[in-house]
């Protein structure tokens, strides 16, 4: 499973100045209270906590202060092959900067080595606008002109993480049951409540739920909402109803869709039945149930579900 989100961040006067510099192929440092020049410039002096207001334009060359070899790069790192991360002290600066160095092997880098920036052709105002390479003393390549004139006030930093999920033993039996068209819950040995989907522990008593209970696919709508707002990835045209369905025999409601009825006619207490997808489309998923639809029975008494709201 992949969880991804693009964070849009405002940069402010200090980081904005630094990132605008990178966009323009210039490294900008900030002067600290003790006179030292820091790259990147921190917004506040780490010792005096005074705002950093004085900027210094620096050359795009420097010296390796420390380095490591990334033998197995992870997704998103600046080079799609093994490379070095290094702390680089830019000429004229006093504090080192974490950056990537493009060299062929760990034998091609050492502490004290001179490096220079290799600027990306298209720069957006990001620390990924450059990587460092060995400074062989030849005249540096001239960077392409900046892509904009406005200061870099906003940056977008995409974050994407991959997860491999395992189901708990209780969740496993629930999902396996669905693959057979059965809805399985579990009963707490102490309070006798039936949870569906089953959980690792009864949230009331904190003890494992052990006894498996097969539930009916008929239940009662305890509460619902009409979805009117379109959103990314929406699969049904609004308005439609998402509801809590208390299956007969369960003590906790299951969230699902209510279809085959106009949204404005859905009500608390309405009796509904699962509409299963065709059997050849089943997997180990709650999506085996397409939605719930009215049974046509009389509505349930409020008293029958008032403790399950």
């Amino acid at each position: 499973m992949t969880v991804a989100f693009d964070y849009t961040r405002s940069t402010g006067p200090v980081i904005g100045r630094f990132l605008t510099g990178l966009r323009d192929a210039t490294i900008v440092g900030g002067r600290l209270g003790d006179g030292r020049v820091a790259v990147p410039p921190p917004e506040f002096d780490p010792v005096t906590h005074q705002a950093v207001t004085e900027f210094v334009e620096l050359p795009d060359t420097g010296t390796i202060t420390s380095w490591t070899w990334v033998s197995e790069p992870v997704a998103g790192q600046p080079l799609g092959k093994p490379f070095a991360f290094a702390l680089i002290t830019i000429d004229g600066a006093d504090t080192p900067w974490l950056q990537a160095v493009d060299v062929a092997s760990p034998d091609d880098i050492e502490t004290g080595m001179k490096v220079r920036a290799r600027w990306a052709e298209e720069r957006t105002g990001s620390v990924t606008d450059l990587v460092f390479v060995a400074d062989d003393g030849n005249a540096p390549e001239t960077a392409t002109p900046a892509g904009g004139t406005e200061d870099v006030g906003l940056i977008v930093t995409p974050v994407s993480l991959d997860y491999r999920y395992a189901a708990s033993p209780e969740e496993s039996s629930f999902f396996r049951g669905l693959a057979e068209g059965r809805i399985l819950g579990q009963r707490c040995p102490k309070c006798r409540k039936v949870y569906v989907p089953p959980r690792g522990a009864c949230p009331t008593d904190g003890v494992p739920t052990s006894e498996e209970v097969e539930l009916s696919d008929v239940g009662t709508v305890t509460t619902f909402c009409v979805v009117n707002v379109p959103f990314l990835g929406q699969r049904i045209k609004p308005p439609y109803v998402s509801a809590y369905v208390l299956l007969d025999g369960a003590d906790i409601a299951l969230q699902h869709l209510i279809l085959d009825i106009p949204a404005e006619e859905v009500r608390m207490g309405m009796r509904v039945k699962a509409v299963w997808k065709p059997r050849d489309e089943w997997g180990t998923s709650i999506e085996n149930i397409s939605h719930f639809a009215p049974t046509g029975e009389p509505d349930a008494d409020f008293d029958s579900y008032k403790h399950h709201l």
């Binding site: 600046p78 974490l98 620390v127």
Partner: peptide
């Protein structure tokens, strides 16, 4: 998130 995370 400004000066480090983009490099992962």
């Amino acid at each position: 998130p400004y000066t480090m995370t983009p490099l992962w």
